[in-house]
Amino acid sequence: MTEYKLVVVGAGGVGKSALTIQLIQNHFVDEYDPTIEDSYRKQVVIDGETCLLDILDTAGQEEYSAMRDQYMRTGEGFLCVFAINNTKSFEDIHHYREQIKRVKDSEDVPMVLVGNKCDLPSRTVDTKQAQDLARSYGIPFIETSAKTRQGVDDAFYTLVREIRKHKEKMSKDGKKKKKKSKTKCVIM
């Protein structure tokens, strides 16, 4: 069974824990209790493949930012979460993405942009803004509501699919490099 290491990042209060708990335990946590770091595991079937999701729910508070490099190193894919009623959390996505790329030393890291709290009427981040940002990053965008469960499975499952595509691409690139290195030079 394939294991996928997913990391949920975003500013404090955007609903990272609520999304994760909704996926794992099928219930909505409405009281806000700032996370330092929590880890969850769940076995699911995605596109006919049974897999184990190892999900790291991270601290959004700035005082825990020193811990970010460590979990970013171990993560295979990242859910970059903002709240649709919090423009600052949307603007912060850029910083999370840049930090992930720096730590992973790669421009090509599996990510999904997630606009959470889409059940709320007080939207300050337009869907088109988020779609445009995701398009500019070359990553999928999904709106979710941890409260109603809308888009929750889709967000995590899409990230797994992005990781699969990335692994497939990397193995193809690896095979191309191996083929090239088999060419021999004969000096007579």
Score class of each variant (00 low, 15 high):
T2Q: 11
Y4D: 11
K5A: 01
V7W: 07
V9E: 00
A11H: 03
A11N: 04
A11R: 02
G12A: 08
G12C: 08
G13K: 07
G13M: 10
V14M: 08
G15H: 00
K16L: 03
K16Q: 00
K16M: 04
S17Q: 00
S17H: 00
A18D: 14
L19R: 00
L19E: 08
L19Q: 10
Q22R: 08
Q22C: 02
L23T: 09
L23D: 14
Q25P: 13
N26K: 09
H27F: 08
F28L: 12
F28Y: 09
D30L: 04
D30P: 11
D30H: 04
Y32N: 11
Y32E: 11
Y32P: 09
Y32W: 07
D33L: 08
D33G: 10
P34T: 03
I36A: 09
I36G: 10
E37W: 05
S39E: 10
S39Y: 04
S39N: 10
R41P: 12
K42I: 06
V44K: 12
V45A: 08
D47M: 01
D47F: 01
D47C: 02
E49H: 04
C51A: 05
L52Q: 14
L52N: 13
L53F: 07
L53I: 12
D54C: 04
D54E: 13
I55P: 07
I55C: 09
L56F: 10
D57H: 14
D57K: 02
A59D: 13
E62H: 09
E62Y: 06
E63S: 09
Y64E: 15
Q70H: 08
Y71D: 12
Y71Q: 14
R73Q: 12
R73F: 03
R73N: 08
G75D: 02
G75K: 02
G75S: 11
E76F: 11
F78L: 04
F78P: 00
F78G: 00
L79Y: 00
C80Q: 01
C80K: 01
C80A: 03
F82Y: 11
F82H: 06
A83V: 02
I84G: 15
I84F: 14
N86E: 09
N86Q: 03
K88R: 06
S89A: 07
F90N: 01
D92S: 02
D92T: 14
I93N: 10
H94G: 02
H94I: 02
H95C: 07
R97I: 15
R97Q: 12
E98R: 01
E98A: 05
K101C: 06
V103E: 02
D105P: 04
D105N: 15
S106L: 12
S106F: 11
D108W: 05
D108Y: 08
D108M: 04
P110T: 02
P110L: 01
M111F: 09
V112K: 00
L113G: 01
V114Q: 00
G115M: 12
G115L: 11
K117C: 15
K117F: 15
C118W: 07
L120R: 03
L120P: 03
P121M: 12
P121V: 10
T124C: 11
V125W: 10
D126M: 08
T127S: 13
K128S: 14
K128F: 11
K128D: 13
A130C: 10
A130M: 09
A130F: 14
Q131S: 09
Q131W: 05
D132F: 03
A134I: 02
A134Y: 04
S136Q: 07
Y137M: 14
Y137F: 15
P140R: 05
F141Y: 07
E143R: 12
T144S: 07
S145P: 00
S145F: 04
R149T: 05
G151I: 06
D153Q: 14
D153C: 14
D154G: 07
F156N: 01
F156D: 00
Y157W: 11
L159V: 05
K165R: 05
K165W: 01
K165T: 02
H166M: 12
K167D: 09
M170T: 15
K172A: 13
D173C: 03
G174L: 12
K176N: 09
K176M: 10
K176T: 10
K177A: 11
K177V: 13
K179Q: 13
S181A: 13
S181W: 01
K182W: 04
K182E: 15
K182A: 15
T183D: 15
C185M: 02
V186S: 15
M188G: 15
